[in-house]
Design a protein around this nucleic acid. Structure first.
Length: 572
DNA sequence: GCCGTTTTCGGCCCGACTGTTTTCAGTCG
């Protein structure tokens, strides 16, 4: 059982307890524990059965929750959860996803109206019985009727690239206003999460209504959902929701800190403020009613005894402790990247030639690239067999003479087949400068077989790196089930690098896996997997992911010079 | 339900906005 599955038990339990009107702090305890588990690099099943380790050593897991985890690992179920599910139908839990409807209202709908599904809820709203409930009204009825089709729709979260583009465009326009001195995106977008549910934008202005009006009439805005004196919520044409907050200049740092989150990070920061006799809110840090800090984020962190913490790390996953000890990592930056070791050309499913890719890479400041077209198993992309690949490499060799200032490696993205053999024979792979081995097919095979495939690839002496390890697609497809610890140990033993695939729909390794790989000393490469010249521009998202994992320049192999990078290759 | 360099009990972040109220609870971030 994967940690994500175990975490799910506690998340479901928290939802159900909330509807039952349980103690909110008890509910939070379950959610915190779920988060801890989802962020673990070791499997809970392993820790639970290992006599040398204690689950209670992990934050937010006490005696009670540790016992429940043991039960889940041992039996694959949790009696308490089963009981609650019998009392509260799944359709009732689904109502929690309606915007504007929380556990209290869901509880009333279920207990007083006996609705047990979105369908029944719609009928109840249409015949007026929802509006007649105490605490409900015409507006609530309308919110429910509008929300039901939205819930039925798929996940509302957007990939980071799209979210960031939307936010940047609006921020840029707000900054053009005379009254606006500072503006920034905040929230999960500023933390560079893989996906963003909605956008938070912050601005300082002497004329709040001007800013609000500008956003309300912005060409990207479809509809204004709510508007007060300093806060406005709009729905963008792209489908994203955006919150705008306007604060005075002297509050900008406090507001930016506050709205960047994460919620979990902020809870700890606020507690630190409290312990020091302050009150921290989005307007600043106050002693009694006197503003002590708030103009910059640095001021706010300094007031609670910490250096500034990069937004990507603000998840309460240990960054506050590191900051306290002045051991925050010096995070890798986009400009540190010197090479890109995964890209395609017209030889398979790319849209640009070798020369065009090399020129585009050079113009983006890269010093070396690897051309890695598909191997033959990927028939849809017209993957290369041995003879076409050798011709392709000769072609690359010719191009080397036509462009200076950038090194080009003869590479291949070689499929690891379902039977755990490589898609191309050893003698061909041995001629490559760079082999990136990947799973494309049979991702649903059982864990043992997936592991066997990856371990075989890692042991193959010609393989340089494993690309997009799990094969997951962000928000669309879960990755293959694999034993991360075993794979990582093997990669460390054999000197095989692991890729952070920078494409916003992959970002694989994820942040948790990348941190675990780094801890084992495995060199990480961040690659674009570009299928066009513009595809090279996604490098930044891979770097964001690396930053979220706390990686430094030295942890990432393709920040090295070409000469240094070559030395990392185990067999060349 | 978790947690503890004053604590094993009594805390657990804090404010804006909305809708349904006639002073506030619920929801959200």
């Amino acid at each position: 059982m994967q940690n994500a599955d175990v975490a799910r038990y506690f998340e479901d339990l928290a939802d159900l307890l909330e509807i039952q009107n349980a103690n909110p702090f008890r509910v939070r305890a379950y959610r915190n524990a779920a988060r801890t588990i989802a962020n673990l690099t070791e499997s809970v099943a392993h820790i639970s059965t290992n006599p040398d380790q204690k689950l209670t050593d992990f934050p937010g897991i006490g005696k009670v929750l540790a016992e429940k985890l043991d039960t889940i690992v041992e039996t694959g179920s949790l009696p308490q959860l089963d009981e609650l599910r019998e009392q509260i139908p799944a359709g009732v839990v689904q109502m929690l996803r309606l915007p504007g409807i929380g556990p209290k209202k869901v509880s009333i709908l279920f207990n007083d109206l006996s609705v047990t599904s979105l369908h029944e809820l719609q009928q109840a709203a249409e015949n007026g019985s929802v509006a007649a409930l105490k605490g409900f009204g015409k507006k609530t009825e309308q919110i429910i009727l509008e929300g039901i089709p939205q819930v039925a729709e798929a996940d509302k979260r957007f990939h980071i690239d799209k979210a960031k583009a939307e936010a940047d465009a609006v921020v840029e326009d707000l900054l053009k206003l005379a009254s606006v001195t500072q503006a920034s995106v905040a929230g999960s977008c500023r933390r560079c999460r893989e996906t963003v549910g909605d956008l938070d934008v912050l601005a300082t202005s002497t004329d709040s209504p001007e800013v609000m009006n500008r956003l309300a009439s912005h060409e990207r805005v479809e509809q204004v959902l709510a508007r007060g004196g300093t806060k406005q919520r709009v729905w963008l044409r792209s489908g994203l929701e955006m919150d705008l907050r306007v604060v005075p200049d002297e509050s900008y740092g406090a507001a930016l800190q506050y709205f960047t989150g994460s919620k979990e990070h902020n809870i700890v920061i606020r507690r630190r403020a409290q312990e020091r006799g302050f009150k921290l809110n989005e307007y600043g840090l106050f002693r009694d009613d006197e503003l002590v800090a708030g103009r910059t984020e640095e001021e706010v962190y300094a007031a609670v005894g910490l250096p500034w913490i990069p937004p990507e790390l603000r998840e309460n996953r240990g960054e506050i402790e590191l900051a306290e000890q002045h051991q925050l990592p010096n995070l890798i930056e986009v400009n540190d990247i010197r090479g890109d070791l995964h890209m395609h050309t017209t030889a398979t499913d790319g849209t640009a030639t070798i020369l065009e890719m090399a020129q585009a890479a050079k113009s983006r400041g890269l010093k070396y690239i690897a051309i890695t077209d598909h191997s033959k198993r990927v028939t849809m992309a017209h993957g290369l067999d041995a003879s076409r690949l050798r011709k392709h490499w000769k072609e690359i060799d010719k191009i080397r003479g036509k462009i200076s200032g950038i090194e080009i490696l003869c590479g291949i993205e070689c499929d690891i087949l379902e039977d755990a053999t490589m898609d191309l024979p050893d003698d061909v792979l041995s001629e490559a400068d760079w082999v990136i081995a990947v799973l494309h097919y049979g991702l649903k095979q059982p864990r043992d077989q997936i592991n066997k495939r990856l371990l075989n690839a890692i042991r193959c002496p010609h393989v340089s790196a494993i690309g997009h390890l799990t094969g997951r697609l962000v928000g669309r497809r879960r990755g293959a089930d694999l034993d991360i610890e075993e794979i990582f140990r093997a990669a460390a033993d054999h000197g095989v690098m692991l890729e952070i695939n920078a494409h916003p729909s992959r970002l694989d390794l994820d942040d948790v896996h990348a941190a675990a790989a780094r801890d084992l000393g495995i060199p990480i490469v961040i690659n674009t997997d570009a299928h066009s010249t513009n595809g090279l521009d996604v490098m930044q998202y891979g770097v964001f992911q690396a930053r979220r994992a706390g990686l430094e320049k030295k942890d990432v192999a393709n920040t090295r010079t070409f000469a240094q990078f070559r030395k990392l290759l185990r067999h060349k």
